[in-house]
């Protein structure tokens, strides 16, 4: 599903590479934790998958497409197969919960009847049934993140990218979010989650990929957060 082949990313000429010859394979349906200190290259990894950045060297495949040779007008279609959630939720404050989720379908031109049936389903799935008309500021952090996840998942993507989705949440709420991501993973969606949260990683016992200053230093199935623990 995601394949990195000797991928290097250098942002500014002469600077230390943000990613340094990273090779990695993520199979369809896998759940992968991406761990490492700040600045280790986790976000760069996710940005390369979304093709918000292009690799300086090496090749990136996402859902069977080589992103280096993908023409830019095809990028939007590639992104429709990827959902993304972030630490800061990135919701639209002027739109209701329903509208926030529907927005993702509207802007890719989905028909109205499709939106009216799909959005309530996904809101039900993330546990927000009955809160469709609330606005983001009327919700708790955990609920806001559920809206963001609903938006990322509403188009049934093949891949869900999560960049520290629990970074702003307390441990109990985080656990709820993790259960939700796990459930999404069980539907066959590949999940890649960048995180600092050692408790969660240790509890979930999923594949752990560790980056350190741009290099891949550990790739362990059913791993824990710190390798030396």
């Amino acid at each position: 599903m995601i394949r990195f082949e000797n991928v290097t990313k250098v942002y500014a000429r002469g600077a230390r590479p943000a990613l340094d010859r990273v090779s990695l394979d993520v199979e369809r349906g896998e759940f992968v934790f991406l761990v490492g200190a700040s600045g280790s290259g986790k976000s760069t990894f996710l940005r390369l998958v979304l093709r918000e950045e292009r690799a300086s060297a090496g090749r990136v495949w996402v859902a069977g497409k080589e992103l280096g040779t993908l023409s830019s007008w095809k990028v939007p279609h590639m992104r429709r197969r990827i959902g993304a959630v972030f630490q800061d939720f990135r919701l639209l404050p002027t739109k209701t919960v329903f509208e926030n989720v529907a927005f993702a379908l509207q802007v890719i031109g989905k028909p109205r009847h499709h939106i009216l049936t799909t959005v309530p389903d996904v809101l039900e799935m993330v546990g927000l049934a009955g809160k469709e008309k609330r606005r983001p500021h009327e919700l708790s952090g955990g609920e806001q993140q559920r809206v963001a996840i609903a938006r990322a998942f509403v188009n049934r993507p093949d891949i869900l990218l999560a960049d520290e989705p629990t970074g702003n949440l307390d441990p109990t709420t985080s656990l709820g979010i993790m259960r939700l991501l796990d459930r999404i993973n069980r539907t066959g969606t590949t999940v890649v989650m960048a995180t600092h949260d050692d408790e969660i990683v240790d509890q979930m016992r999923k594949r752990v990929v560790e980056l350190d200053t741009g290099s891949l230093v550990r790739d362990q199935s059913r791993g824990v957060y710190g390798s030396d623990r």
Partner: peptide, 16 residues
């Protein structure tokens, strides 16, 4: 904020 989300979920350039 809107255009960022639009790009993220795969809206075409023309649509944005």
């Amino acid at each position: 904020r809107e255009t960022g989300i639009m790009r993220l979920v795969g809206a075409s350039n023309l649509f944005i």
